[in-house]
């Protein structure tokens, strides 16, 4: 009995990549921007220098990948949270549209922002 071709490996890849990236990188962002700079451990970068950093093409790509994959990580996790935590498996198709659709919408918005910034 051949099981039908599933897209789960696809979603799982985005989930895994997003989880790994965000687990390693988001704490660095939080530590720098949320703790070290406000507490004065590090000198605050001026508006101009931070802006020129974000405008650099590599930073744009970095931010896009980090934000988009983190969103897909959320989407997959939240999908299963709704299935198992709230027992909503019977709403599977709506949940998938909501979760992955949300992540896709976030990805598109992120793309527009990093291109037009």
């Amino acid at each position: 009995m051949a099981a039908k071709k599933h897209n789960d490996p696809f979603w799982w890849t985005l989930f895994g990549a997003g989880g790994t990236l965000s687990a390693f990188l988001l704490p660095v962002h939080v530590a720098l921007i949320g703790i070290a700079i406000p507490l004065g451990w590090l000198e605050a970068p001026g508006y101009e220098s931070l802006r020129s950093l974000v405008e650099h093409p590599i930073t744009r790509i970095y931010l896009f990948v980090l934000i988009s994959l983190s969103l897909f990580h959320w989407a997959h996790r939240f999908r299963y949270t709704l299935y198992d935590g709230l027992m909503l498996k019977h709403l599977e198709s709506y949940i998938m549209v909501f979760c992955y659709g949300g992540a896709l919408a976030g990805t598109i918005i992120t793309a527009i922002l990093v291109i037009t910034f």
């Binding site: 099981a3 039908k4 071709k5 599933h6 789960d8 490996p9 799982w12 299963y80 198992d84």
Partner: peptide, 14 residues
């Protein structure tokens, strides 16, 4: 793989 990557297979594991 045919049997275990589909419905009710490895990706059901959370």
């Amino acid at each position: 793989n045919e049997e275990l990557t589909g419905e009710g297979g490895i990706y059901s594991c959370t």
